[in-house]
Nucleic acid binder design. Structure first.
Lengths: 242, 242
DNA sequence: ACATTATGATTGTCGGACAATGTATTTGTG
DNA sequence: CACAAATACATTGTCCGACAATCATAATGT
């Protein structure tokens, strides 16, 4: 019988360093907040030079698994939804995602999110939504930037209230991607202020009444209204987000 | 009047290197597939040492913006949906996402995805779905692994057919997260093979008829069926994915 | 006891060196 | 001349050593 060799692991050392540390984090040996050894210590433990260790650390750093904490020590981090959303949205933007794709996904997700929210939102979460609505109500007329930020913040608060980190990460990444384009839309839409305010109020009302269908319906209308804004503002839906 | 200084940029050099290159990619100066200079060349251009350049490259590398191409040269990459999905799902797993959160999100997204698919899926995409279904049909009984992979592949093909990279990335990340747990569920569910096969057939039928409501309804049933499997298999929905 | 200073540890950056590897060029041969 | 083989070259991966900057801790002075 012919002996067979396993393929050798020819990955660069810095990749191996990254994988080794990552493995211990994944397996729970290194829990969140744990301090990693110093670079010098890692060198002796792995038997490699500091350059390689440092390059490995950069890989871990960018994937959000470790960060420099107090006293510059390396601490194990567990990626937060907002960070995941940020890197995902950035990657999609770079990957050439278009307004159309983002908006369609938004239109697919948020009505369902509203339906779920109607059955779950805590009083605090509802209060936060009301605060956003009130902030929008009191916004000075013509302040497009403020209107946009309140509009996005409304989505943001709704997503937060769902108490589901996976949903939150996805919805947040959409919020990040839609933010920039929304500015253009609201700039050119008359009555944007009132229309958004009205939609938010109706949605809040439905959420308060725990009326899932109503919440979903109003969210659908709200988004449909935004979509019309895109048409009015002549945003090219095939254009890349940037 | 008191002169005011802007806060100095005290970021480490390797971060600046990363940002500088990233900026040129983002602004379109460096398009996808473009070759970056060699490390030595970057050193002279930035006026820093190779160590710093290399650490900066690691950051870019992990964020999926560059990769080593032919002849080891650095080439600009635009992140693909599958890569975004992979890093996102990994991050969420590390961030402590639970089966419950993933499954709830799945149950929220896929019925809507099916509805959209009914109005859009190309013949090729439908054919791919049929292929998956046929593969599942011909799978030997008791081959849990195969059943799982066909079940996931069905979701995968459906997502691909939507022709929306943002949706695709999100759905794919769910697929990755659900994969492992599905194995346990199907292992312990009697008739899983037939039930999944039946659901796939019904969904395909609805898609062929361009019947959005029917497609959505059957997908909902399909997922509800999987949910029952989770209960039967006594999967703790509050347990972390790992 | 508390503020200040000295000490030490650690990271960030530099410079140079060399082996491994893949590319490009030259050379040899029909 | 065409094509294969050998050579030279360029580039990355890895190592080593050094030092300034920064921050934490210990020592010191009042």
């Amino acid at each position: 019988m012919k002996h067979k060799f396993k393929p050798l692991d020819r990955a660069p050392v810095y990749v191996k360093v990254c994988n080794a540390i990552e493995e211990d984090i994944l397996s729970g040996i290194l829990k969140e907040g744990a301090l990693l050894p110093t670079e010098a210590e890692l060198c002796t433990q792995f038997g490699v030079t500091r350059s390689s260790v440092r390059e490995g650390i950069r890989l871990l750093q960018q994937s959000g698994l470790v960060a420099r904490g107090a006293a510059k020590r390396l601490v194990v981090k567990s990626p937060k939804a907002s960070e995941i959303a940020e890197t995902a949205s950035r990657s999609m933007a770079l990957g050439g995602a278009t307004f159309g794709e983002v908006f369609e996904t938004l239109a697919m997700l948020y009505p369902e999110a509203a339906r779920i929210a109607a059955g779950r939102l805590s009083d605090e979460a509802l209060g936060a939504l009301c605060d956003v609505r009130d902030g929008l109500r009191d916004a000075p007329p013509g302040a497009a930037d403020e209107i946009v930020s309140y509009a996005v913040e409304f989505f943001q608060q709704l997503a937060s209230g769902l108490d589901n980190r996976v949903m939150l990460a996805m919805l947040q990444s959409l919020n990040l991607m839609i933010g920039a384009s929304l500015r253009r839309v609201i700039d050119q839409t008359p009555n944007a202020h009132e229309r958004i305010l009205g939609a938010q109020s109706e949605i809040i009302e439905a959420l308060k009444n725990r009326d899932k269908n109503q919440a979903r319906a109003w969210m659908t209308k709200h988004i449909e209204d935004l979509r019309r804004g895109y048409v009015v503002a002549k945003v090219n839906l095939d254009a890349r987000i940037l």
